[in-house]
Design a protein around this nucleic acid. Sequence first.
RNA 1: GGUCAAGUGGCGGAACUGGCAGACGCGCCGGACUCAAAAUCCGGUUCUCGUUAAGGGAGUGAGGGUUCGAUUCCCUCCUUGACUACCA
Length: 837
Amino acid sequence: MSSNNNFDFTAIENKWKKYWAKVNLYEAVDFSQKPKKYILAEFPYPSGKSIHVGHAMRYTMPEIYSRFLRMSGYNVMFPMGWDAFGLPAENYAVKTGIHPAETTEKLITDYRHSMMDMGYGIDWEREVNSTDPGYYKWTQWIFLKFYEAGLAELREEPVWWSPHLKTVLAEEEVEKDAEGNLVAERDGSPVERKLVRQWVLKITEYADTLFDGLDDTDFPSSVVEAQRNWIGRSYGAQVKFDVVGEDGSAIDGVEDFEVYTTRVDTIFGVSFMVIAPEHEYVAKLIENAANKDEIQAYVDSAKAKTELARQQDKVKTGVRIEGVYCVNPADPDSEMGSKIPVFVADYVLAGYGTGIVMGVAAHDERDYEFAEKYELPIVDVIELGQDGERFGITGKAINSGEFDGLATDDAKEAIIEKLEKEGKGEKKKNFKIRDWIFSRQRYWGEPIPLLHKEDGTIEAVVHTSDVGEGNDLLPLELPEVEDFKPTDDGNSPLTTNTEWINAKTSDGSNALRETNTMPNWAGSCWYYLRYIDPKNSSAFADQEKMKYWLPVDHYFGGSEHTTLHLLYSRFWHRFLHDNDLVPTPEPYAKRTNGGILLAEDGTKMSKSKGNVINPGEKVNEYGADAVRMYITFLGPYDGTFPYNESSLKRCHKVIADVWALKDNIVESIDDSEALAEINSELHKFVRNVTEMAENLKMNTIVSQIMVFVTYMKGLESLPVAIWRDFLKVFGIYAVFTAEQLWQESFDRGDIEDIAKEDSLHLQDWPVVNEDLIIENVLELPVQINGKVRGRIEVAVGSDEANVREAIENDEFFIGQIDGKEIKKFIYVEGKIVNLIV
RNA sequence: GGUCAAGUGGCGGAACUGGCAGACGCGCCGGACUCAAAAUCCGGUUCUCGUUAAGGGAGUGAGGGUUCGAUUCCCUCCUUGACUACCA
């Protein structure tokens, strides 16, 4: 065996990462006889010389887990790719004139290398790149499927517009900054409303499916709840209120108001109606109002205000539309119900429900506030709670005519039934989720493959059923442009390439190409499908291969993607499934969200503070194995921890200690008792770590490794068989060092002579042999009245009588019991004894 | 305001289906080596009473409950974090 004691981790890393890449060690085999496991981690946006620490946090644990599964007999796929469309590369292009494809390619190379530096066990034959025309051909193809199904639609939409980015943003890409201003999530620049012609994908048509489909997944409850809240399904009623003038006559053009309510049981408490300023009825109602100018002024000011200012208004404002009234369909004859005043107020959202609400002052906090301000009647229609609670309560109906005395649910049913008979209402399901605005006025994205014909109709570049081998209409590739910057009026730079935008349709007539590109999220909606069959040029993936690999068994990623990427890709997958294009209804069986690494002082790492840890630098300093071990040792995958360099050093030390142990390795030892003990310790160790690995407790495995290393250090010599089993466990963390030691233990020197299947990482996980675990005496904790007072040694498998006898004859416990009567003797085998005296 | 998650030493965290709380690591303290320091190695380290000791008491955010026994299960409250937010 080698006598080289110098632990040169850099040399070891360079040697093995080259070898592993050459033989594509971590190959996932289609249709293997072994059971499959598809372990997925969200693919990164390449943005620098190396992966950053967030990536290391996201990838290391799943990667170690995938190694455990591979060695445990699974055919594991752990792929990687690049989500490479996006703004940073494009902004760089705007600044420098260098084509984003060129920048992206370089960044991808750097990222791939830094992942290899980390020793990640990736099947590089399956690498995908969302900006590769061979990839986005299929992104475009799937988009056309949506288009053909009527789920992609061109709409005039009020959208978020960032004057700084010169781009439209989805609702989800807008957030509030520290001061409460609405800003672009991407760069913190302010956003405003603008009407733009946009492509939308009708995710709302899948709202129910996406909501219910969560039942079939094994996602953390936080993710399930977040998606359900985002979809925001509610059950209620849509009710018609007749609109009349001062004298009870009908109003021209506005026959009735339809409102959506989840609390139709409170309809007898309606004392006012509120319509959103943007509602189309407002203009018509103004004509009939006595206070025309006042209303117009309010509507104008509400529209001029950004959403920002409106949401910041804590105090509700509104203006009464004088001379216009509603009639309560449930209570048309009472004084209140026959003449309900109507207000326009901006606390009502135009985009949710019908844009008109019925005001029930007594039981809705917002309505109450509004009613107090405008001195409107507040009539209780539900018996108040014991503490006078009134908002959102359920209970017995009062002041509700024939429905008095009914419990909330019964009242809802009964009232709806009555309204339905009269044609005044119906049950209705409602959602918060909006359709997904699916176009960006930018260059670096997938071109939308549609043509605008001269007669105003739209034609797909190619019918999806015609796409296949030899058909070159897809991908519709990004053309060259002179400047990558959007035009000043906010159009895509593609509009400046007149040669490209002028095209012919299938019948030879003139048409203009769609110049919007797809949003960032498009390519990531289906990348996990492409890993299954990355080089297929006649389909996005082969059906049989998908049947083998899908669903993704475990998907690791970031919580920031819960309501964006994770929901969008479920939407795409459900749609593909409905069209018989994927075999499973859901893409991901199980999801786990990852945590973040903070700076040493517990604050967030940021470039401006200069406290960013670069994993590449730490790899150079302490070795990749130490970094891998440290990152998993921190704590559970979803935790957030401060960085601690001393702990990283400790991990390095443990690895160096293992390296030093190789000089103690012997073929076998003669002392059979000592050998039995070593075997026992090994098998206990393996039993512990195997159970931990199955439960993804990768941090405590590191603890176990440390304990076992300490044990081995205390031995004079270590049989090589023990050593090798240890290396198998050690090797899922310290991939480089363990491989080197493994090969040395066989005296395999020259790397050229080592067969792929002889790599440590393709060996079988050690099997626990319970028979080798020696546990003949047991130290049982003994409680007296529920408190541990001492321990007693008993033989393994002792029954209650044996244990009782041992305790009653033990001098220490005789003293403890002090002659009292043992009223109860509790013995849990192998666990504990409890005496009640 | 809503939803979800979580509160364990100085710190990160362990503790399987209710059964020895604090594994492992950091930090700290003491010792060895050294002229000295760093590095390294060895020992100790929940708090508290007790002369070091033997030994006792308290203890997993607070209060209550179930149980022979609760960090773990139930109820109430407090705090923190994440997401979401005028969604009728």
